[in-house]
């Protein structure tokens, strides 16, 4: 039967592709990371550079996810519940991080927040006036800003279709009975978007953990402003066999984090699409 031949062909292509492109490389990361034994693995993960990178990665991720959750909720709420000029433009603009290369985003931040940049100049003025030394570019705030930039559409994108399909009726009904904004949000809206919101947060987290390009442009100091992906790159580029094995070890850490996030994602996705 032609039908079943097509089916076998399509399924085989998909499976082979996934195995070659995803499974084999990921397994190779895990195996290579243990190439020089468990002790080496543990040592590779506990160097000051790696610990610093892990710390910064987690800080940047937590802050980016928190900021983008609040921002995504505000934007999605505004766009689905109110009518205003420029609504479509705003929706399109929020998608920019999806279409712009992260490296370009990093460079744009340098031009904006660097010493010569538009906002950077004002920060210099502020520093002179207050006697402080706030740095954005090539410092931790820059890394965090870059992470926020590349991850900011996720929560918005996940929440908005749910808000759209649920309509305004329930909120209107609650408002008619005298409920105020806060009550409406926590008792009506939040339960509706809960799973979509958590799913958006998971996607946002996964992306924040792995971001390389934009952060790379904003970061120069290994051990201070390097995140895990940058640290892996630095280890790998150094070229010695030990360093490459160490790069794999650190990579395995990210892979494990990613697998954890993936499991959460599967869980939330199932909740999200459960008919209610």
């Amino acid at each position: 039967m032609k039908h079943s031949k097509t089916k076998i062909l399509l399924v085989s292509i998909s499976v082979v592709f996934v195995v070659v492109m995803l499974i084999v490389p990921l397994i190779s990361v895990l195996i290579n990371s243990l190439a020089e034994g468990w002790d080496f693995y543990v040592k590779a993960l506990t160097t000051p550079y790696v610990l610093s990178a892990l710390r910064l990665t987690l800080i940047a991720t937590v802050i980016a996810v928190a900021v983008n959750t609040v921002f995504g909720l505000c934007a999605a709420w505004a766009i689905s519940k109110f009518d205003f000029r420029g609504k479509h433009l705003l929706t399109t603009l929020i998608d920019i991080p999806f279409s712009v290369s992260p490296v370009i985003a990093g460079l744009a931040f340098i031009m904006t927040f660097g010493r010569m940049g538009w906002i950077g100049q004002w920060i210099e003025v502020l520093n002179d006036y207050l006697g402080t030394d706030i740095q954005i570019v090539f410092a931790v705030p820059g890394v965090i800003l870059a992470t926020i930039f590349v991850t900011f559409p996720f929560v918005f994108r996940e929440v908005i279709p749910v808000l759209h399909t649920q309509g305004r009726d329930e909120e209107e009904a609650a408002a008619l009975m005298g409920a105020k904004g806060r009550t409406i949000f926590f008792r009506i809206t939040l339960p509706q978007i809960k799973w979509a919101l958590l799913y958006g947060i998971v996607l946002c987290t996964a992306r924040a953990l792995g971001e390389f390009g934009a952060v790379s442009a904003m970061s120069k100091l290994r051990g201070e402003t390097f995140t895990l992906p940058l640290e892996i790159d630095a280890l790998y580029q150094s070229g010695s066999t030990d360093a490459i094995t160490a790069a794999f070890a650190v990579s395995s850490l990210l892979v494990l984090l990613a697998v954890g996030v993936l499991l959460l994602r599967v869980f939330f996705e199932a909740k999200l699409h459960k008919p209610s």
Binding site: E170, A175, M177, G178
Partner: peptide
Amino acid sequence: AAKRGIGFVFQNYALFRYM
């Protein structure tokens, strides 16, 4: 709206689905 003493039945009822 909330102070007019109106009871409103919406077309799709708009029941609070999580209550």
